[in-house]
Design a protein around this nucleic acid. Sequence first.
DNA 1: GCGACAG
DNA 2: ATCTTGTCGC
Length: 232
Amino acid sequence: MTTVDIPAGWPATEEEARAVQDGLRARVVLDEPGPPPGTGYVTGVDVAYDDERDVVAAAAVVLDAASLEVVAEATAVGRISFPYVPGLLAFREMPTVLAALDALPRPPGLVVCDGYGLAHPRRFGLASHLGVLTGLPTIGVAKNPFTFTYDDPGAPRGAASPLLAGDDEVGRALRTRAGVKPVFVSVGHRVTLDVACAHTLALTPQFRLPETTRRADSLCRRALQEATTTSA
DNA sequence: GCGACAG
DNA sequence: ATCTTGTCGC
């Protein structure tokens, strides 16, 4: 497990953070299909917080895309780098997530984020942000529709409907388990929405949320517990 | 101006 | 995100 410092020059205000998003947004690549689902590696990243102690823990878990077995994992802990502000989540998670990815013993392949990519007030959610900073293909799979609207997809697994920001399709509500609340998929970087949804379905053979985020979620919680329980 | 709002 | 055990149900 590695320890991270907040990068020098990290945005300190909402205004600065929004300016960073506006400056980076043009670097998002949307015309690449992305890695084919079911092959290579897929990595889940997630973060857990202890606001009381100002501690954040991130985890990156690499799965074999075909078997969904864990082949590598890494964690990082640091100080909370930004308050939670809807639309600025990336500034809260990025430094620690980047450190966890760096600590991985092998390339991550496609990265699956817990949150949004293109589906964002300025079309630059944390998945897009992470993709631009790392150059990796990324997607976002969120548990809530945020400020967007959608028609409920049909009940069967695989059913989907557009996630809308006004008239723009910024993502998709995707049913990963029959009769269960859908997840909300959006493109991050270097992946197509169709491919992002295909990956999401490949990663949810049994549960609503992708195996990648389930694995990363439990790992970062353990890392946080350890960092909080252990002295120092 | 007020409320809602990824994690 | 986080506070939080057992319990109802497939």
